[in-house]
Amino acid sequence: MGRNLGLVVALVLLCLVGIITAGDTFATGANVLTILRLAAVIGVVSIGMTFVITGGGIDLSVGAMVALASVWATTLATQQMAADFHWIFMVSTALLVGSACGLVNGLLVAYGKIVPFIATLAMLAGARGLAEIISDRRTQIISVNPFVDFFGGSLIGVPVLVWLFLIVAALGWVVLNRTTFGRRTFAVGGNAEAARLAGIKVQRHTVALYVLAGLCCGIAAVMLMARTTTGSSTHGQLYELDAIAAVVIGGTLLSGGRGTIVGTVFGVLIFTTLNNVFTLNNLSISAQSVAKGLIIVIAVLLQQRLAARGSTP
């Protein structure tokens, strides 16, 4: 928790501002759930992004993958299958589509030797275009009620969406910090050549990281489908920027080799709480963007200090 101290302080400060300026609404259970529901979708995307960035890559296509997965999982054919058998068809379609896009990203980066920025930029354009073709740019409404009822509902007073976020975050933490896979991710991101000499199959590992990011996008697509009862090629716009911002202010190094799931979760919560506080106080639309920009700059400046200290022990 030590290295996340700055984030905790920032979040506590934000909450204090919220309580002081709009206490009667801010400090209610309903409002906390509102913040968490907003954080859930982008949070799951950000967990996947944390893995890719820690492994020395970047994924610009997350928003487009969310859109494509949401569209593919809500086509008439998929919904018919879901209505006839079980909504699990829609969920598995979304997860498969997300993972498949991630696989393409990973293969292009690891074996095609295309820099991640370009490979995933291509996927950004391609996946959203494909989503537009499949949906004919129309919003596809979900008529499978059991699906909406399940994911839109609550378990023990907490929305299912928030549970999903918690589960993905917890699994992400365990995988990154307590498994060989996680240690290899740090090694590949820190120094790919050294990792290869140490016997790690760097290419295969890189592919796995992108598939993981795609899978997270599939999960986020399911959550967004439940929240909006639609699938659309316009879903997930600019999620890549939101996710990268959350990951970076969380303390994960953009150059790879260092990453923190807890930091990412805090990063997402800081942005969504900021949003909530600004809306509650009716503050100017543009001031909010300025505040976001400032937070990112301050976080990265701090991070550079830390990195500099780390490299000269």
């Binding site: 309903a30 509102t34 907003l38 979708v41 639609t230 009716n282």
Partner: peptide
């Protein structure tokens, strides 16, 4: 008394803005 939320093309965010309005009664 008009409360204006940030203009957004992200439906997830717009939904949460409406939820915030509901919380604000």
């Amino acid at each position: 008394e008009l409360i204006v939320a940030e203009g957004t093309n992200d439906v997830n965010l717009q939904i949460s803005q409406v939820e915030t309005f509901i919380n604000q009664k």
